[in-house]
């Protein structure tokens, strides 16, 4: 538990077992991107409720906190706990590989991360994954 790293094979197998247990005990398969739709619907609802009420996709994926919403939030805390136990938690504003190629500018990295986030989620929703 305090080790900095586990073999990806062992960790992957454990994640597989966790998925089997989850499906067996609660019928839930893992997913994350639907939660971003619900969260976006929640944010837009507080600004323009009439608009959201008429949007087909937000009717399909309602702005509510469900199993997957808790799953996605808890992933952050699980990672925080694991990193804390091994003393591996530290603030990294720009990843090393990015910095080696594109420089240490935070604005550049954060802008591209934001843009990438927009694109990756649009694609994930389109492919339904």
């Amino acid at each position: 538990m305090r080790a900095k790293t586990w073999s990806p094979y062992v960790a992957g197998a454990l994640a597989g077992l966790l998925l089997v247990l989850s499906v067996f005990l609660t019928g839930k398969y893992f997913g994350a991107s639907t939660t971003f739709v619900r969260a976006a619907g929640f944010v837009e609802q507080s600004v323009a409720p009439e608009k959201v009420a008429g949007m087909e996709y937000f009717l399909k994926e309602k702005a509510k906190l469900d199993w997957q919403g808790m799953f996605v939030l808890a992933v952050l805390f699980g990672s925080l706990a694991a990193a804390s136990l091994s003393g591996d938690r530290r603030a990294v504003p720009v990843p090393a590989m990015w910095e080696a190629r594109f420089g240490a500018s935070r604005v550049r990295r954060w802008t591209l991360a934001f843009l990438g986030g927009v694109i990756v989620m649009f694609g994930a929703r389109l492919a339904d994954g």
């Binding site: 994640a15 469900d66 199993w67 808790m70 992933v75 805390f77 990672s79 694991a82 990843p95 590989m97």
Partner: peptide
Amino acid sequence: ELLTGAVTGLLFGFIMQKAQVIRYD
């Protein structure tokens, strides 16, 4: 349902951090 979601997510996040798969690099 919310509790099982939280427990599952905690474990999954823990495992992913240990496997170092959550890093940009």
